[in-house]
């Protein structure tokens, strides 16, 4: 499994943290059927909505950014979000590939 771009993502996360920003990390932890990106794909989200990396090639990113921002506003450390075709939300988001993915989000502290 390649994790080449993760280096860029992690370096940027470190920069954002050094600039006193709250940052969350989103990771694809499970996939079923055809999914655009593999397990281990990552994305970082800052509290002001900036993001880098990708977890689905564009299908669910906006929802993941939203979830990360709200996670950072709570005391919760982490959360797993399932995007399934049968799931109404995912339908709206349009996982066009027809696959299901689980994304784990956590705040970097």
């Amino acid at each position: 499994m390649s994790n080449f771009s993760e280096k860029k993502i992690f370096e940027e996360a470190d920069n954002w943290i050094k600039n006193n920003k709250k940052v969350s990390l989103a990771t694809v932890v499970q996939t079923w059927g055809s999914s655009p990106l593999g397990i281990g794909s990552r994305m970082i989200v800052s509290e002001d909505g900036n993001f880098l990396g990708s977890v689905s090639g564009g299908c669910v990113e906006s929802k993941v950014v939203e979830e990360c921002i709200s996670l950072m506003k709570t005391k919760k450390i982490c959360k797993k979000i399932d995007f399934k075709v049968s799931n109404e939300n995912a339908w709206e988001m349009g996982l066009a590939c027809g696959g299901d993915i689980s994304i784990y989000i956590e705040e970097i502290k």
Binding site: F10, A13, D14, Y104, I108, K109
Partner: peptide, 24 residues
């Protein structure tokens, strides 16, 4: 995740080490 772990991952990668990150 702690930022220290991310820094450690970057460091180990730059040293060409092979490892895994385990998350609960």
């Amino acid at each position: 995740m702690k930022i220290e772990i991310i820094r450690e991952i970057l460091k180990n990668k730059s040293l060409n080490k092979e490892f895994a990150l385990i998350t609960n």
